[in-house]
Design a protein around this nucleic acid. Structure first.
Length: 510
RNA sequence: GGCGCUAUCGUCUAGGGGUUAGGACGGAAGAUUCUCAAUCUUCAAACCCGGGUUCGAUUCCCGGUAGCGCUACCA
C-alpha cells in the first residue's frame, strides 16, 4: 500500500484512496492484445476480485512514436471478449503533468541531471548489449551552471536519474512471487526519466501513475523484475513508499523464445482464440493454468472458482510454454484444433459440455448464421444437444452439423453408403426398406429405433448394416451424431428425400 | 560482456530430506453405444549435471550448464 511520505512532488494528482487494494493492468498500445498481456490482466483482475479490491485499466501510451489508435481499439476488443471488466480507466498521456512534476522534483532534489546527447536514431541492430557496461549511456554529467545555460538556450535534453555509484549500495524489495530481491546500484545505469521531447519514459510515468492512482500491488510480467530496482530508486527520490510487487513468469513459445506475432503468427493474439471458437471462460481458465496452480489437481474452473481460489502464493517462477504448433497457418480453418495448445482445446471442450443447451445454442447460432446459413433459434436448440459432445471449438459446429443447415447435401462418394461386410445390393435393400418404414413411422426417437431395428431383422441385417447407409444418406458422411435423434431433427420430408437420392446415387453408380 | 531470474514426464503442473515422485493434456491399448464423440479402464513418459551437508537428497547449500529477462530518450 502506498503511504504518503513527506516531500511528495505535488498534491495534485495524488488522490488518496484510503487503504484499499488497487491493482492495474497497463498495456502499451503498440499492437494487438497479446496472450501474455491477457494473462497479466486476468491475474490482476482475479487478485482484485478475490480481495474485494479495485481493477484499473491504464493505457501506457507515452511513446508517441509507436502508439496507434488501432492498437487501442484492438486491446479493448480483446479485453471486452475476456468479459471480465474493470473499475477505473486512465490514459497516461492525459497525466503528463504529474509525470513532469515528479521528474522536476527529482531534478531539483539533485538526483537527476540533464543529458544533452542527441537521441540515437534507433536502429534494429542495437547491439549495445556487447562491449563494456556503461553506467551512463549518454554523456558525462555537466556542471549545473552549464547545464542550466544550455537548457535555457533551448537545447533539447533527456533527463537521467543519477544512480549512486561511488557510494554504491544495494537496492532491495520483496517480490510476492520471487521473494527477496537485491541489486547493487553499481549495476544500475543512469536510466532516463524524460526524453528530449519532454515525454516521460516508461519508468517515470509508471511510477508516477502507480503512486498517483494509489496502486497497492503491481502485478506484471517478469520482464520488469530487474526494472523494479529503478522504480524503487525513483520512488525513493520522490519520497513515496513503494507498492507491493508481484512478478509473473513469462509465457513463451514451444522453442523457448518469447511469443512474437512475426515469428509465431496469429496464435499470440487474443482475438484469434475468439475467432477460432474458444469460449472466453475456457480461454481465461487455460491462461490461469499457465504459471499458476490451485494445487488441488483441479483443471476446469469457472470464473467464480478462479476468484475464490486465486492467490499470489499459487504462482510459480518458471516460464510457461504455450504449446501451440509452430508455423501453423490461419487458425480459423479446418486445422484449428491442431494449431492451438491441445490443453486449451480440451479445456474449451470441457467448458462447452458444462454449458446448458440454451447457453450453448445462443453462442452457436451467430456462428452458423455468419457462415451463411439460415437457422431458427428453435432448430438450433434441437441441434445443440447433438453437437455438444462432438465439438471442441464453437466453429466445429459448421463441420459437425453442416447437414442440418443445407438444403442439398454436398456430393459424397456412393461407396460410403455400403455397410460393413456388405455390398451395393445390401445398401440398396436397406435404403429402400428404410424409405418405406420412414414414410410411415412417427419421427420420434423410440418409434424410429424400434421400426428400423425390426426392418433390419426382416432383411437379415445387423443393426449397424441397416443404420449406416441411412446415416450416410442423410448426413453425407459416416461419422455423425446418433441416428434417431438426427432423423428427428431433420424431419420426415428431408429424410425421405435424402434416402431417395441415395438410392438413385447407388443405381447410377453401379 | 555485466547483472538478475529460473530448472520435476513432450507440454501444464503437484510435491518435498526417507514417496511405487501425484494429477492433467497429448500419445498408445482396451471396454462401451448404430458410426463418431463422450465416458470408463490400462500402459508408456520426468526430478539438468557435478560437488557438499546428511544415516539418507529430486528436495537444503555451492558451482557448472542451459534457458529467459534487463542492460533504449520501448514498454
Amino acid at each position: 500500500m502506498f503511504t504518503r511520505m513527506n516531500d511528495s512532488p505535488s498534491d495534485k494528482g495524488l488522490r488518496v484512496f484510503a487503504n484499499r487494494l488497487r491493482v492495474r493492468f497497463a498495456p502499451s498500445p503498440t499492437g494487438f492484445l497479446h496472450v501474455g498481456s491477457a494473462r497479466t490482466f486476468i491475474f490482476n483482475w482475479l487478485y482484485a476480485r478475490h480481495n474485494g479490491g479495485t481493477m484499473i485499466l491504464r493505457l501506457d501510451d507515452t511513446d508517441v512514436e509507436r502508439n496507434t489508435e488501432a492498437s487501442v481499439q484492438s486491446i479493448f476488443e480483446g479485453l471486452k471478449w475476456l468479459n471480465l471488466g474493470w473499475d477505473e480507466e486512465y490514459k497516461q498521456s492525459e497525466r503528463l503533468g504529474l509525470h513532469r512534476e515528479m521528474a522536476n522534483a527529482i531534478f531539483e532534489k539533485g538526483v537527476a541531471y540533464r543529458d544533452f546527447t542527441p537521441a540515437h536514431a534507433e536502429d534494429s541492430e542495437r547491439s549495445g548489449a556487447q562491449g563494456p557496461w556503461l553506467f551512463n549511456p549518454g554523456m558525462p554529467e555537466l556542471s549545473r551552471p552549464e547545464s542550466d545555460r544550455r537548457a535555457a538556450a533551448g537545447e533539447p535534453f533527456a533527463m537521467r536519474f543519477r544512480v549512486p555509484r561511488g557510494d554504491a549500495r544495494p537496492v532491495s524489495f520483496v517480490d510476492a512471487v520471487y521473494g527477496e530481491q537485491s541489486k547493487s546500484t553499481a549495476d544500475i545505469e543512469d536510466f532516463a526519466l524524460l526524453r528530449s521531447d519532454g515525454m516521460p519514459t516508461y519508468h517515470l510515468a509508471s511510477c508516477a501513475d502507480d503512486a498517483g492512482l494509489s496502486i497497492s500491488h503491481v502485478i506484471r510480467g517478469q520482464d520488469h523484475l530487474t526494472n523494479t530496482f529503478k522504480h524503487i530508486l525513483i520512488l525513493e527520490a520522490a519520497g513515496i513508499a513503494p507498492p507491493q510487487f508481484a512478478h509473473l513468469p513469462l509465457l513463451i513459445a514451444p522453442d523457448g523464445s518469447k511469443l512474437s506475432k512475426r515469428r509465431h503468427g496469429a496464435v499470440v493474439s487474443v482475438t484469434t482464440y475468439r475467432d477460432a471458437g474458444f469460449l472466453p471462460e475456457a480461454f481465461v481458465n487455460f491462461l490461469c493454468l499457465l504459471g499458476w496452480s490451485p494445487k488441488d489437481n483441479r483443471e476446469r474452473m469457472n470464473g467464480k472458482e478462479l476468484v475464490e481460489t486465486f492467490s499470489l502464493e499459487g504462482i510459480n517462477r518458471a516460464n510457461a510454454v504455450v504449446n501451440f504448433k509452430e508455423g501453423a497457418t490461419s487458425p480459423v480453418n479446418a486445422q484449428a484444433e491442431e494449431t492451438f495448445d491441445p490443453k486449451a482445446v480440451w479445456l474449451n471442450a470441457e467448458h462447452i459440455r458444462a454449458l446448458t443447451v440454451e447457453d450453448l445454442s445462443n453462442r452457436l447460432t451467430p456462428i452458423v448464421r455468419e457462415a451463411g446459413f439460415n437457422v431458427t433459434s428453435e432448430k438450433m436448440l434441437q441441434i445443440t444437444p447433438l453437437v455438444r459432445e462432438r465439438i471442441k471449438l464453437l466453429r466445429d459446429v459448421l463441420t459437425v452439423a453442416d447437414f442440418f443447415f443445407v438444403d442439398r447435401l454436398p456430393a459424397y462418394d456412393p461407396a460410403e453408403l455400403i455397410p460393413q461386410k456388405g455390398d451395393a445390393d445390401m445398401a440398396l435393400r436397406a435404403l429402400r426398406r428404410a424409405h418405406e418404414v420412414l414414410a410411415q413411422t412417427e419421427f420420434k426417437h423410440d418409434p424410429l429405433d424400434q421400426a428400423l431395428r425390426a426392418a433390419a431383422q426382416e432383411l437379415g441385417l445387423k443393426a449397424g448394416q441397416m443404420f449406416q447407409p441411412i446415416r450416410v444418406a442423410v448426413c453425407g458422411r459416416k461419422n455423425a451424431p446418433p441416428l434417431f435423434e438426427t432423423l428427428e431433427v431433420l424431419g420426415r420430408g428431408t429424410t425421405l428425400e435424402r434416402v431417395k437420392q441415395a438410392v438413385e446415387k447407388i443405381c447410377t453408380a453401379v
